[in-house]
């Protein structure tokens, strides 16, 4: 554990919490892509199967449980409790265009041809593109509430911080995971355009349009 990784994890935690709080407080999930949320839940469900096979640390276990519960909680709020506020007409990104290539890639490029390992690889690749339905929705409606922007910023910052963590781990431990690093870079790059708008607009109090 290093400072980049810790702040990255906390940023991820913060992103999930502000999304849940936004939906809960406003009693609405307008502007949020349910498809991205389903992809994130799938990411956690396929990556954290190791909860059943081996223990890493209490921190690791608790964070995994939190991410799993909160992502399924978000889906429940969007598709059940506040279903009427879900903006489904604008949430039209075709997720099969992500799922199929990601599934094929994970079968070809993995560390080991083993069920758990392939599912872990699938989750890493899927996470890198899971935000696309959300970004597509923002571009389609042409705007995002500032709370949605804060959510996206915290979520993007998390993987960016993980890149710093990998650089640090490479020099201190010789740790290098090519799959995670490439996917992490792709994931961070997808947020770059959004980061630019966030810094130039949202932080100056303007709406993201």
């Amino acid at each position: 554990m290093n400072i980049f990784r810790l702040i990255g994890d906390l940023s991820h935690l913060f992103a999930i919490l502000i999304l849940l709080l936004k939906i809960w407080k406003t009693r609405s999930c307008a502007g949020i892509s349910g498809r991205s949320q389903i992809l994130f839940a799938l990411v956690f469900a396929t990556r954290y199967l190791d909860l059943f096979t081996h223990f890493i640390s209490l921190y690791n276990t608790l964070m995994k449980i939190f991410y799993l519960c909160s992502s399924f909680g978000t889906i429940y709020l969007m598709y059940v409790k506040f279903k009427a506020t879900y903006d489904r007409n604008h949430d039209t990104f075709r997720v099969e265009f992500l799922l199929i290539p990601v599934a094929i890639l994970s079968l070809i490029f993995n560390h080991e041809f083993d069920v758990l390992e392939i599912l872990w690889t699938f989750s890493i690749y899927l996470e890198s593109v899971a935000i696309l339905p959300q970004l597509f929705m923002v571009s389609k409606t042409g705007e995002a509430e500032s709370i949605t922007s804060h959510y996206l910023f915290a979520l993007g910052a998390y993987r960016g911080l993980y890149i710093l963590n990998w650089i640090y781990r490479y020099y201190t431990e010789g740790f290098f995971d090519l799959i995670a690093v490439i996917a992490g870079i792709v994931q961070t790059v997808l947020y770059c355009d959004f980061f630019y708008l966030y810094i130039t607009k949202v932080l100056k109090g303007k709406r993201l349009t």
Partner: peptide, 10 residues
Amino acid sequence: KENDLDHDEL
């Protein structure tokens, strides 16, 4: 080898 695949990150 086993250790390499101990994915300790989240």
